[in-house]
Simulated assay, not measured.
Amino acid sequence: MARQIADATQSLSSAGDPLASHHGPADQPRSPYAAYLDSPMAACHVIAETAELASTTGRLAACWAS
């Protein structure tokens, strides 16, 4: 169980990557979606979807391990 929690934690910590990939090192927009993804609502949606994916992955890993 601890391994699944560690895996889920790592997946959740990566949730910001899809958001950050639309900005350059000096926070300049890299894509036309950057302004949209800067909104709190969009950021929450991306993080929620990533959390759901991490949860599903953890459940599948637990099933495969048993």
Rank of each mutant, 00 (worst) to 15 (best):
S55V: 00
H45C: 14
H45G: 09
A65M: 05
E52A: 12
Q28C: 04
A8K: 00
S11E: 13
Q10C: 10
M41K: 10
A48D: 03
D7N: 08
T57G: 01
A54L: 05
A26K: 12
Q10T: 14
S13R: 09
R30V: 02
Q10V: 12
I5M: 12
C63V: 05
M41C: 07
D7W: 04
A8D: 00
A48Y: 05
L60T: 04
D38M: 09
G24A: 14
G16F: 15
I5T: 09
P40V: 00
T50R: 07
I5D: 12
S31T: 12
Y36R: 05
A48L: 08
L12H: 07
A65G: 02
A43T: 07
R3Q: 05
R30W: 10
L19F: 11
L12Y: 05
P29W: 09
L12R: 08
L37C: 02
G24P: 11
R30M: 07
I47C: 06
A15C: 11
L60Y: 03
M1Y: 06
S21V: 04
D7A: 07
A26T: 08
A2C: 13
Q28Y: 12
S21E: 05
D38E: 15
L37K: 00
A35C: 07
P18A: 12
A61E: 00
E49N: 12
V46F: 01
A2N: 13
T9Q: 13
A6C: 09
P40M: 03
P40W: 01
T57W: 02
A42I: 12
I5R: 10
E52K: 11
A65Q: 06
A2D: 13
G24D: 15
I47E: 07
W64Y: 04
A20Y: 13
A51W: 03
C63D: 06
C63T: 05
E52S: 07
Y33D: 13
D7H: 07
T57S: 07
A61R: 02
D38Y: 04
S66Y: 10
T57F: 02
I5G: 09
P18Q: 11
Q28R: 14
R30F: 06
A34E: 10
I47P: 02
A2L: 13
R30P: 09
Y33M: 13
T50G: 01
A2E: 14
Q28S: 10
